[in-house]
């Protein structure tokens, strides 16, 4: 695609890549289930530890019953004051599960990307072997992009956060401060779009060509640079869909129907996983990676 502008033909190409990408996800729908179930198990551990902590501290009180019917500030604060480490166990479990999930997610997404490059459905065994083979390169990519992400976030927002009050006073307007923030967010969006697409492209390249990490990183970067307008448009689409999911989930949270809300929330999460995989396969279509893999 010509990076200079997006023509009608480009848009049609992008649409067709999206359709092809989605079909590709449907072929490999079993991996959606893997991702979903693994996350559900980990989240289940966290949820049940929180529940156990609450049971331990409030289980046999009427305050606990009140707290269960709806969040109650006084019950919560009385608990936190009288038992400052009320959530010590939950906190520790959360950190451990978070780290394990993070590492496991690298493994699973390695399997996902490799699997999505195939036109035919892949077995569980092949998924696992691909994931194992690509785990270390993908761990490298994850750490590299995580550091890049932290640097970008720090540079863009660090000085702003540290000097917000003097800055507002210098600007003589908090409205202007927000405008500056909006500009930063826009730049942030463009940079995030670049590094996210770069990360996916590098991983696709690595899964497809199995060259060195460094070569894949370079190739992914070039690929992203070459297609940056179209890829930014994809990023906008997929991140908007993901944010829409979060927004709907927040709205659902206000409903009184606990179980229904939970089920709908899980469905939204399923949707977010599909969006992530759809993003991978669409970029794979764009870089002509699919089918070229043996």
């Amino acid at each position: 695609m010509d990076p200079a502008f997006i023509s009608i033909n480009n848009i049609l190409d992008m649409m067709s890549a999206l359709v092809k990408g989605f079909k590709q996800v449907l072929i490999h729908k079993n991996i959606i289930v893997y991702l979903f179930l693994i996350q559900l198990i980990f989240a289940g551990i966290v949820g049940s530890v929180i529940q156990k902590d609450l049971q331990m501290h409030l289980g046999q009180t009427i305050a606990g019953q009140v707290f269960e019917s709806d969040f109650n500030y006084s019950v919560f604060m009385d608990m936190m004051r009288s038992i400052p480490d009320a959530f010590a166990i939950s906190g520790k479990v959360f950190v451990i599960v978070f780290v394990i999930n993070f590492i496991l997610a690298i493994f699973l997404h390695a399997g996902c990307i490799q699997t999505l490059l195939h036109k035919q459905k892949q077995s569980m065994a092949s998924f696992m072997s691909s994931a194992a083979k690509l785990f270390f390169p993908f761990l490298f990519f994850a750490l590299f992009f995580l550091i890049l992400f932290l640097i970008i976030t720090g540079i863009l927002f660090g000085p702003l956060a540290a000097n917000s009050l003097p800055f507002v006073e210098w600007l003589e307007s908090d409205r202007l401060f927000f405008y500056v923030l909006y500009v930063c967010l826009f730049i942030y969006f463009l940079l995030l779009s670049f590094i996210t697409n770069w990360s996916i492209n590098s991983r696709i390249h690595c899964a497809r060509s199995q060259v060195s990490w460094w070569q894949s990183l370079k190739a992914g970067g070039l690929q992203t640079k070459k297609n940056y307008r179209a890829l930014t448009a994809y990023f906008l689409l997929f991140s908007s869909l993901a944010f829409l999911g979060i927004w709907v989930n927040i709205k659902l949270d206000n409903l009184d129907t606990l179980v229904l809300t939970f089920i709908l929330s899980l469905l939204i999460l399923l949707g977010k996983i599909i969006i992530r995989l759809w993003n991978y396969s669409t970029l794979a279509v764009c870089s002509n990676a699919i089918n070229k893999t043996v």
Partner: peptide
């Protein structure tokens, strides 16, 4: 009390 609310919310928000 079983604290179903926080179990379910804990699961969905953690996910």
């Amino acid at each position: 009390t079983f604290f179903k609310r926080y179990l379910l919310k804990g699961i969905s928000w953690t996910q």
